[in-house]
Amino acid sequence: MKKLSLLMAVLVLSFNVAAKEWKTIRIGVEGAYPPFSKTEADGTVTGFDIDIANALCAQMQAKCTLVKQDWDGIIPALMARKFDAIIATMDITEARKKKIAFSDKYQHIPARFVALKGTEYQATNAFMKGKKIGVQRATTMDLYISDNFPSAKIKRYGSADEAYLDLKATRLDYVMADSAAISDGLLAKDGGDKFEFVGPKLNDPKWFGDGAGIAIRKQDKDLAKQFNAAIKAIRADGTYQKIQDKYFDFDVYGG
């Protein structure tokens, strides 16, 4: 009996220690969504999300390992404990909150359509009928198009880069993605001058949530608190601003 209670005490104690502060964190990143996250020729990942991840870790004085994971499987991998947090421009939505939890937002960028210059666009299902729209599978944009334009031919891709390829090859009429990702991944690249944004900026919280946050498992509330404090701290001390200026000429945090 004594032994058992001792064991219990040790368990409770060690649990408490683990719950207090995270010193080592594995972070899942995508590596295929420039400028937020991209894979360099030598295999390392760079980008806004990566810099934010490193800044947050430095702030928390935690040892972080970045784990590259395709977008498709990124939430299942988090739940399967392949890593402890996701920093990958993931919008905070109700549907996702059923499975996982989020920190406060760390950025908020509207989504937009892009198409060949001069392409007409109307945000109605009737107009979009039969039009080929490319989108990254399992994103908020995917849901938005599925719900609003069910008559369109929706083509779902594993990464935004593949969708740009097919847009350039005229297999698609439109691609929808985060506006900043389109600017960097398509418009600023070779041959990107043939394309332009069409339609308004889209950020209806019903589909796009309230900005992008850091995803964690539901039971790791303490980790969310730690991240929230760190986000506040890097916003306050100018680190965030510095990282933002490296990639964007506008406010990515949003109001």
Binding site: D72, G73, I75, P76, M79, A95, R96, K99, I100, R137, A138, D142, L143, R156
Partner: peptide, 11 residues
């Protein structure tokens, strides 16, 4: 299966 997995996170 990919679409369904993507929507429900139930691989």
């Amino acid at each position: 299966a990919r679409v369904v997995n993507a929507r429900y996170y139930a691989p």
